[in-house]
Design a protein around this nucleic acid. Structure first.
Length: 479
RNA sequence: GCCGGGUUGGCUGAGUGGUUUAGGCGUCCGCCUGCAGAGCGGAUCCACGGGGGUUCGAAUCCCUCGCCCGGCUCCA
């Protein structure tokens, strides 16, 4: 098959044609969240970008096996569940639920698996055992460590020169019982507190729990195989997390671990870093209080995933307006399709519409193929929206309009916009509202505008938006 | 300090040597309209962090300085 998509690969630091190992199958793994709190809007950006890449590859004919893991055991989950007086399981299940609902709201497709680290502990133990047998891992006082001197390629992904860094790292070196400052834990032996709370697993090295990095190596291996096509995550994960994963997995299998490394840029706020301690933290909930999840997804799309995204409330409002406008085109289409069939001809207007739509779609596809350049793609989407809006100001040829609409919706769907849109209600609601707007129309004909406005206001209070047009009155339920 | 990325209009955001430096939002004007909304048409006045350099020509290449982000260190 053809492979038109170009993706930027962190390992080779260049954009290159995306060719999966076994087309049309694509194996894709995204490093998911540690579930110890509400979802972070910067984090959600990374996952939405992952969703977008997946959708685009599917649009391009690939069968994407997409996995997004859940880290449900680590220092923070253990600490905070203790503070909250809950068991680790209760605590992480709660936040896993919150996280998945957040993804749903943002219209991210569910992965084929959202594996939890705690479900793969036996496999992790086996994996570590093998590394130990190969002489790459060693058992120390407080855990089992990976000996990075045994992996010559260490540092290739992140460009970190371990030799250099070590010299400034004396202090932390003394704190641990490991042989080299950059050796990292594969297995952490249980602390007295963890033993008391029952947070541990039996292993050949005594009770304990897996290290963070080993989780991803084992779960990718179990679910997607030894070599995967795409491994993605936030830019902060490049070092040490992903570097360590490469070391573990390639030491274990002797094969290339990942063909394309994709890292998403962080989200900023007002041009700087966002943090709870900086007092400028904006939560997902804060955003949803003022704006639709659709608009939030649009904001994510408005910047290419590899560029910094600056969150501001004015950008958020802008996104809201834009989304409203794009959705309005769907309303205009719907209304025009309901209208009279008084145009059955194919003339210049029709030719122009289809030509514009076709050209814009081609350009949209080119932009997306070029490392998922969403800002450019959105520009072409607007060209289609505008062309349709203009066309329906006149009598519509329903065949031609339907064709244009089909392309428009296809592109909206691939971006994950308006898939769950519903403007209507059930049949009774629909007939009632139509009856009310018909009665109001009578009042308007009598020039009884005050009464007509009261009806309009009361409908708005009930969540029904109406618009008067030359063809009559149209309505839709507010989302 | 070291390594990597960034710095474009009121906001957002394309564009890596040469016709007008996209698109969106906002704002303004007009059309339509009982009003509102939506839509259509038009407008938005020297916008490329500072300073040097290369070139016939630079937002784009080179040098330098500033600021921002990520990593090196718990922080997504």
């Amino acid at each position: 098959m053809e492979h038109p998509v170009q993706l930027y690969d962190t390992m080779t630091r260049q954009k290159k044609p995306f060719v999966p190992l076994n087309p049309p199958t694509v194996t894709m793994y995204v490093c998911g969240p540690t579930v110890y709190g509400d979802p972070h809007i910067g984090n959600l950006r990374s996952f939405t970008s992952g969703d977008l890449i997946r959708r685009w590859l599917e649009y391009r004919g690939y069968d994407v096996k997409y996995v997004l893991n859940i880290t449900d055991i680590d220092d923070k989950t253990i600490r905070d569940s203790g503070t909250a007086g809950k068991t680790l399981k209760e605590f992480t299940e709660h936040y896993t639920g919150v996280f998945l609902r957040g993804l749903d709201m943002l219209n991210n497709k569910r992965a084929i698996s959202h594996p939890r680290a705690t479900a793969y502990v036996p496999q992790m133990i086996d994996f570590i055992k093998t590394l130990e047998e190969k002489g790459i891992a060693y058992d120390a006082e407080d855990g089992v460590y990976f000996d990075i001197d045994k992996f010559p390629g260490y540092g290739a992904l992140s460009g970190v020169d371990v030799e250099k860094v070590e010299q400034t790292d004396r202090v932390s070196k003394d704190e641990y019982d490991k042989e080299n400052a950059h050796d990292f834990a594969l297995w952490k032996k249980a602390t007295p507190d963890e033993l008391e709370r029952g947070i541990y697993y039996e292993s050949p090295w005594g009770p304990g729990r897996p290290g963070w990095h080993i989780e991803c190596s084992v779960m990718t291996n179990q679910l997607l195989g030894e070599t995967i096509d795409i491994h993605a995550g936030g830019e902060d994960l490049t070092f040490p997390h992903h570097e360590n994963e490469v070391a573990q997995s390639e030491s274990y299998t002797g094969k290339q671990f990942v063909r394309y490394w994709i890292h998403m840029r962080h989200l900023m706020i007002d041009g700087g870093r966002m943090g709870k301690s900086l007092g400028n933290y904006v939560s997902f909930e804060d955003v949803l209080e003022k704006h639709s999840p659709e608009a939030f997804r649009y904001l994510y799309l408005s910047t290419q995933y590899r560029r910094p995204l600056n969150f501001t409330w004015s950008a958020m409002e802008s996104a809201e307006n834009t989304v409203h406008r794009l959705a309005n085109t769907l309303d205009l289409i719907e209304n025009a399709m309901k209208g009279p069939d008084d145009n059955l001809d194919f003339e210049e207007r029709e030719a122009t519409l289809l030509k514009t739509v076709k050209e814009a779609k081609t350009a949209f596809i080119e932009a997306m193929d070029d490392d998922i350049n969403t800002p450019i793609a959105l520009g072409h989407l607007h060209a289609i929206s505008g062309a349709i809006n203009e066309y329906v100001t006149g009598p519509a040829n329903k065949g031609v309009l339907g064709e244009a609409a089909r392309h428009y919706m296809e592109l909206l769907n691939v971006l994950g916009l308006f898939e769950k849109r519903s403007t209507g209600g059930d049949e009774v609601t629909e007939r009632l509202i139509t009856m009310i707007t018909d009665l109001r129309l009578e009042q308007r004909k009598e020039k009884n505008y005050a009464f007509a406005d009261i009806i309009r206001n009361r409908l708005a209070e009930a969540g029904v938006e109406i618009q008067d047009t030359s063809e009559g009155t149209t309505w839709k339920l507010k989302s």
